[in-house]
Design a protein around this nucleic acid. Structure first.
Lengths: 220, 220
DNA sequence: CAATTTACATTCACGCATGTATGCTTTTAT
DNA sequence: ATAAAAGCATACATGCGTGAATGTAAATTG
């Protein structure tokens, strides 16, 4: 068992392990104290090192936070690519599958729950976190435009009514997803997300089919 | 025109005006810099006073934030009481009216937008803001249980299917509302919330009527 | 096997935001 | 009118977190 105080230098793999444990420790401390109130010494101690290790692997707290975000985020692009190639003929089912996988991922992985808890409730999105915000916005816009494409296809194929405002429908679904995650991480015991995600999604999608949003409310 | 530097003491009404301007200034600076990164000197300067005025009216930053929240929040109880007494025979319409008023309020008042922007994106909910969190939770639970009562009435009166899981339906609607506000304040120009709030709500409520959430997915 | 680089630990100085103490002037109460 | 208190401004002390500088020993490299 190596002595961390005297035996300083580690091999490359050990250094990578140090980096990983720093990311995990940062996620925990961020969740407990909030990002802005987190002191780097707490992160270091949680990971069993000193601040020197943090300043070696990351420039400052902002870069550490950015690394935490990029490390733990669910692979949106992969999900999008996979879902869009799988069921080409049923765009609504594709959307459903996409959203369902995200919710299931959240329900089943503690790290994902911690990530979204930090992002939603333990973080201030200000100027110094601009790169993270920019990446989030880019991912969100890509996801939203892809979903809107799917909704357009659903309209074309008759799965959704012809007067559907697909932009509004997309914003609505996105809001629904964000709200479900936002609130569920606050009290995961309030209901079984993994079991209820499907029915919850079906309720909204059924609403899209029977009474789709149109900006000019139609006269019955 | 009184000199603020030499003439220190003000009348009671002037002191109240100072307090109000401090709340307004705090809301602005919170939105710009984030709550945790806000320096009290910035709030004071924005209000045209010094930190002494803040420490006279409030104990510390946490109490100032709490006052900002209680000052600007939409009167939930009043809305609930009003809506529950108005349309006793149409519980679904009552829920719709309740949610619609909240969205319209957000869409039309800049202060409300600032409040929710701070609450959702410029604030870390940690231990020191415990009283605010507690009050938020209490308000939310009260609102949720009231909405669930209305959904129960809707089931009893046949407006919703008999196998509706009203708890899930309530969580779903709440998530929808939270998500709509959470995302719309990020880019209010993305769509006209005041005009689209009704159709967006109707989509979800229609989904509730045609395919309500049930935790054990029913076998068609 | 030397030279260099890696991967941290340790130390230090600095700024900065906070909280408190105190002073000062005008209301307000009596 | 006089005492008391309200409503701030100013000054001060304090701690705390950061970032940079430096130290150091093991691990690579050639």
């Amino acid at each position: 068992m190596p002595d961390n105080r005297t035996m300083v230098k580690r091999t490359r793999e050990e250094a990578q392990a140090t980096r990983e444990s720093l990311l995990a420790a940062a996620l925990q401390v961020f969740r407990e104290r909030g990002v802005a109130h987190t002191r780097l010494v707490d992160v270091a101690e949680r990971a069993g090192v000193t601040r020197g290790a943090i300043y070696w692997h990351f420039r400052d707290k902002a870069e550490l936070f950015q690394a935490v975000c990029e490390h733990g985020t669910l692979p949106v692009e992969a999900l999008l690519a996979e879902a869009s190639q799988s069921i080409q003929r049923d765009p609504l089912a594709t959307v459903r599958q996409l959203a369902l996988m995200a919710l299931i991922q959240l329900a089943q992985h503690a790290d994902t729950q911690a990530m979204f808890d930090v992002i939603f409730h333990k973080c201030e999105f200000t100027e110094e976190l601009a790169p993270v915000v920019a990446k989030n916005d880019a991912d969100r816009d890509a996801c939203l435009s892809r979903v809107q494409q799917l909704f357009d296809q659903a309209v074309a194929s008759g799965q959704l009514p012809p007067d559907t405002d697909t932009l509004l429908a997309t914003h609505g679904l996105h809001a629904y997803m964000v709200g479900l995650m936002h609130e569920w991480v606050l009290s995961p015991q309030s209901y079984d997300l993994a079991a209820c995600a499907g029915p919850l999604l079906d309720t909204y999608l059924s609403g899209l089919a029977t009474r789709p949003p149109v900006c000019r409310p139609r006269t019955i």
